[in-house]
Design a protein around this nucleic acid. Sequence first.
DNA 1: GAACTTGACGAAACCGATTTCTTGCGCTCT
DNA 2: AGAGCGCAAGAAATCGGTTTCGTCAAGTTC
Lengths: 330, 330
Amino acid sequence: MVTIYEVAAKAGVSPATVSRVFNGLPVSPEKVDLVRAASDELRYVPNRTARRLRNQTSELIALLIPDVENPFFTALARGVEDALQAAGYSVVLCNTDDDPAKETRYLDIANSENMAGVILAPSSEDGDIRHLTDHGRPVVVIDRNTGLNIDSVMVDNRAAGIAATSALFDAGYSRVACIAGPVEIESTEERTLGWRQVVAKRARDSSLDGLLQHANYRVDGGRTAMQALLALDTPPDAVVTTNNLMGVGAIQVLSEAGIVPPTIGVAVIGDLPFATLSPRAITQVHLPARHLGTTAARMLLERIAGDMQPARTVVLRAEVTQGLAPAIGS
Amino acid sequence: MVTIYEVAAKAGVSPATVSRVFNGLPVSPEKVDLVRAASDELRYVPNRTARRLRNQTSELIALLIPDVENPFFTALARGVEDALQAAGYSVVLCNTDDDPAKETRYLDIANSENMAGVILAPSSEDGDIRHLTDHGRPVVVIDRNTGLNIDSVMVDNRAAGIAATSALFDAGYSRVACIAGPVEIESTEERTLGWRQVVAKRARDSSLDGLLQHANYRVDGGRTAMQALLALDTPPDAVVTTNNLMGVGAIQVLSEAGIVPPTIGVAVIGDLPFATLSPRAITQVHLPARHLGTTAARMLLERIAGDMQPARTVVLRAEVTQGLAPAIGS
DNA sequence: GAACTTGACGAAACCGATTTCTTGCGCTCT
DNA sequence: AGAGCGCAAGAAATCGGTTTCGTCAAGTTC
């Protein structure tokens, strides 16, 4: 590693002057040239660790997400990155794997690395966010109510659940099941409540036994739940899944059983990633993943810039793509 | 931030002793207790920046991938993470977006952040890897021949191209097209060569005009290329795509045109992520993405541990899932 | 009992930047 | 001409750990 001292020696100036050149502080033109020449020749790159120790901050922002393999979170990550890159920051993505211990570990790292800020997408249980706010580090939380005085960006999950379910009833289905995620996750519970609310109002059939299936938030969870639904004495004629991956699993099971939408109604909260069948038959409640990311990033940048106003909560809405009506009667 | 000095003062010992306690160096039991009590009470977390400045290394490893939204790379990232987490390292994921400038920037960052090592998955052009190796930082490259003295983990891309194409001929197709990625990317070129080799040998039809389409490596590239293939005077009866996302695009176009495999043969090099149609009709050459990641991580760990042997290249093989034969004649 | 080894532990140097403090030069103002 | 000001730039302190070096006391050996 070439240090500032070597550059200073080569240029015949003091380290302080080299530092000033690199930070745009006033230095006489001839010394600037000397320093530039020396640093180019030595291929000097400032040591960020040293700089950060001195400055107590860096241009690094941590983004914690539970699952890098979920397209919802990668889209969100793109949004965050786009906004932060533009502002000169670099993003480091940390995969918490829905593990509170990992989440806490990464939060501690972000803290002791003196990162400029943190954007946190929820893990199933509460990690120790206080690790961060205690130290006054800027934090924005995505899709989780912390109860703490922290900025957050939310989706209107209740509305998403209502929209998905209503769309199926509107299309003519009457027995609408729900594949929900783990109960600990607040967002999926809200979506489920939306489903419950619409079903209570519009279902002709009053027996809901077995129509609500809880599953893990991944493809295999969706598969298991869909299989359970198909095995019911009176199976549903439509199903809502409260996230994208469970939707994929459900559709896989249906397609393997030879049942293709719109023979059965399917509404997915979230986007169907890389869909290989025509998604027109399926109702999708498009979550603004990327937009969530950019919004969170902008809020964080404001905090980093010194904005001290009380915590804000921004709620974004989802947009529905209505699926086809059932084939019956057509 | 609580510092080691405050802990030392509270415990009535020197900072050196506190450091020794935290690093497991010999300290008398009673002082250990004093230090532990003081640091617990103050909730002391060592400042990684300071530690790293002194130690010239950290437990952070950079993983550079071109596209976080591509499931191939996220699977690879999972592999890397699994292996490195177990060894006590944390992974920071950097999205290079196929942009050599971003790649170079992240490499510089990894370097000036004193990260323990770097795993680099290819971007379309050559970023400046020398930025790293110059400084003796451990690096492992995935799926790219650098020509430099650097460890790498490869897939046998030629064999993958051959396998995909052969599988289609074996299934009974005779006019097999290829949707290839950008020419600059070595891995896709190798796969294309595999296709060319098999086609030259087995195609009855000698006119290959238009059967090779170059496209960008994403879903829309696959769509455009597939549309072009369908518009040919004599369209192919089967197609190979040299990556996963272009495969998704191609299948989307086919399904929108009402052509469903195995009416047309489709072979994808890579896995079809989150497939919503039954993937049995499609030939997949499963790339060992996760395995690539764990292998790269292990090699990197060996280097970090001080292994000085000459650079190694590990070549992994893909595994084929044969798709269905064409409906014709059955 | 003197010389020597061993081990705990504090003082101080060190990592490489940034920044304050200080010096000294050149210019202006009266 | 001498006081005063502005500005470039070097010396040195600083960030918060780790580590070398030196000291001192306790234990060992002859």
